[in-house]
Design a protein around this nucleic acid. Sequence first.
RNA 1: UCGGCGGUAGCUCAGUGGUAGAGCGAUCGGCUGUUAACCGAUUGGUCGUAGGUUCGAAUCCUACCCGCCGAGCCA
Length: 468
Amino acid sequence: MRWCPASTPAARARRSIRRCGSGRGRTGRTGRLRRMDAATRISDLPGAIGRTVTVHGWLTHLRSSGKIAFLQVRDGTGFVQAVLPANAVDEATFAAARAFDQESALVLVGEVVADARAKGGVELRLSGVERIAPGGAYPITPKEHGVEFLAERRHLHLRHRGPWAIMRVRDTVIRGVHDFFAERGFLRFDAPFFMPTAVEGTTNLFEIDLFGEDSAYLSQSGQLYAEAGALAYGAVYTFGPTFRAEKSKTRRHLLEFWMIEPEVAWLEHEGNMALMEELVAYLARRVLDERRDELAALDRDPRVLEATAEGGFPRLSYDRALELVAERGERLEWGDDFGAPHETILGDLHDRPVLIDGWPTETKAFYMEPLDGDPTRVKAADLIAPEGYGELIGGSQRIHDLELLERRIAEHGLPREAFEWYVDLRRHGSVPHSGFGMGLERLLAWFTGAKHLREVIPFPRMLTRLTP
RNA sequence: UCGGCGGUAGCUCAGUGGUAGAGCGAUCGGCUGUUAACCGAUUGGUCGUAGGUUCGAAUCCUACCCGCCGAGCCA
């Protein structure tokens, strides 16, 4: 059931461009629309060689001489070069085409031809071209631009090759996550975004005013709710936005990002680490299978992903990691957490992500299960990416013992009332369970080789940028 | 919050006390296979803001604003 705009002139114009509803007779009344219905996607052109097709797209670049013009065209599915010899159309059409500006919206008709001189090996020999809308002094020219300039025009920059490739990898990773968990019988389980308090007391939260009566906070994790879900449905995962009110200004941080949090009942630490590895390897494989061209467009060497897709992630104990960091001149005390430079050192030891476990209890969150016979350590594991992209995943087995959990909440000085329902889970059929949180943008930045997390989300939210 | 770097034409930058520059873009013209095409011409400025030093400031000084990178925190 789709909403159909009222019959205003603007609505009619919209309807002539976009199909609306299912009434073909109603919407198919203009010649233009019939042509649009028959459009071929640029991504399908290699299979259409020899045929005359219609392409709907936008002009990214134009080169012309007096007798021939080359139109670089994108349609969202790909890029293609359209060739317009002067003698293929009438004089007025050729003159008009030579004057098309960047981002002109075009309907192009031509024969699909294999030609080694064109990028991609296929080009469109035009027999007709019509401009639907002008590009209008488009600001992003095919030259260098600064970070700030492009950020202000993010709504336009998304059209360009780099963001195009990244967003397609992002789509594949998101679909891959859902497929991965669906294939394994996980239930997609949505956690709330408004929270009464912090999941972990440490990080800063965005406060929401509830009509002056009360405060809520934007979620920094769905984990506690996922635990309820795991004990209800066995295996669940959340996939939603996450908010961190941290004044971080680095390439590894956003105020708002997307997190995937699986949680599984009866799953213990070892199995949890295996699940992390399986997920990341699966996603790397999926991107290699579906987005080779996009990786190439990003100049991303696929070998990084190929190693990762094999699985077999190296494992390091916290103690061993401390030694390795010290060997490289970064001495830390036992009980210190690793900072960004240390994570970079550890991540670069191998050609694929590294798992670190055996963490000191005091470095980790209150809900983590202690190691058997060693209360100074917890059953937690972090997955660190190579190339300085930092922590991709943090996870642990959760405390299932009622008394221990109550004690930890008290030790951490947390408000007991807010956690009452969470504690209550331990009163009714409590079993060992584990889970982790994976940062979508961290993973994507690493997969695509992005310089900054802001490149891998459509509209990044940062300390210094809320628009567009 | 702290530390480093930066703000000059639409864009990317050069210019460190003496007439404000280049490349690209845009506009006009030329060119039948271009790949960020090429050739010629034209167009282009509150040098972040305010104050100060100086005969003279984009340049030196002070304050402020904005951004980038990093630290802490974390995904």
